[in-house]
């Protein structure tokens, strides 16, 4: 696997009038991955994507697309973006929408975009405002892919789609990944949508990166240990505990990079992706609450 970095952030921060949306963000997304950008609402997922497109400029730090910082003369030619609300010109027909894509992009692949529309079964003479949510998403995806991006960012692409449309959109997307080998960054706050789809993970919470890496590595690095709660204190080296919860006599502890525990009463499991992400999000939430309590 090549080590080309599709998207990288260093000390990336964005401050709005109401405060920091992102702060001190650093991560690297290797090319060829299908990455999940996960976090609660307001974690800074959309801000991060807007910074990559150049719609926003960072307050601090840098973001790089295949090594280049965003410029003002348009979004990086290797970067495709599908915004959450899938904006399209409502009074354009589907054919006119593709025409617009061609007019706005020197690297436009009309045949490819037309093929995607045909596969979606959307009539080309239909007006955008007469299409269903699923069809609109397919058209917006065709416009984003028509640029032939090497990195495609999708902000909550499956929100407000019915289950059938979700499947179709994901199937299309994954088929194009299989064909082109492009890198994908997909944001969502519904983890179940991403299981089996993503092989790379980026967890954002409270404006910062909590966890990032290949899913297999992350799952292998972590253990979910269940044992008697009176025994849990001091059992694990400090710094390795991600989250520790106890219900009565039983304690559930997520640890990272710790040696296998060999003590009676303790059972180790490999966490699922969902358990892992939720533990990180919960611990970030607690840390934030503590910080707020201290500063108050």
């Amino acid at each position: 696997m090549s080590t080309t970095i599709a998207l990288a952030a260093a000390e990336l921060g964005k401050r709005y009038k109401r405060g920091w949306a992102l702060r001190g963000c650093g991560f690297e997304l290797p090319a060829g991955r299908v990455a999940a950008l996960v976090g609660p609402n307001g974690a800074g997922k959309s801000t991060l994507m807007a910074l990559a497109t150049g719609l926003l400029t960072p307050t601090t730090g840098t973001i790089r697309i295949f090594g280049d910082q965003p410029v003002r003369s348009g979004t990086h030619p290797k970067l495709g973006f599908l915004a959450q609300d899938k904006p399209l010109f409502r009074r354009f027909t589907v054919a006119e929408t593709l025409h617009a894509g061609r007019a706005l992009n020197p690297t436009w692949d009309q045949a490819y975009a037309e093929r995607l529309i045909a596969e979606a079964g959307v009539p080309t003479q239909a007006r955008i405002n007469t299409l269903s949510g699923g069809q609109r998403t397919r058209v917006a995806l065709a416009v984003a892919l028509g640029r032939r991006p090497e990195l495609l960012m999708l902000d909550e692409p499956l929100a407000d789609l019915d289950p059938v449309a979700r499947d179709e959109v994901m199937q299309t997307l994954m088929a194009e990944v299989a064909e082109t080998g492009m890198t994908v960054l997909l944001s969502s706050h519904v983890l179940a949508e991403l299981d089996g789809v993503c092989d790379h993970l980026l967890v954002l919470a409270g404006g910062g990166v909590r966890l990032s890496g290949d899913v297999d590595d992350l799952l292998a690095e972590h253990q979910l240990l269940i044992g008697p709660s009176e025994d849990s204190a001091g059992l694990f080296p400090t710094g390795s505990v991600v989250e520790s919860r106890s219900t009565g006599r039983q304690a559930t502890v997520l640890v990272r990079g710790a040696a296998p525990v060999d003590r009676p009463g303790w059972v180790a499991h490999e966490p699922t992706l969902e358990e892992l992400v939720k533990a990180y999000l919960r611990s970030a939430g607690k840390a934030k609450a503590v910080a707020e309590a201290v500063s108050a």
Binding site: G32, R33, V34, D167, M170, Q171, T172, L173, M174, A175, V177, A178, E179, G196, V197, C198, D199
Partner: peptide, 17 residues
């Protein structure tokens, strides 16, 4: 089936295939 055929039917990551 090719990776593309599998993911077009199952919507999983082609790298997984």
């Amino acid at each position: 089936p090719t990776a593309k055929e599998v993911v077009a039917a199952t919507a999983i990551n082609p790298n997984t295939v």
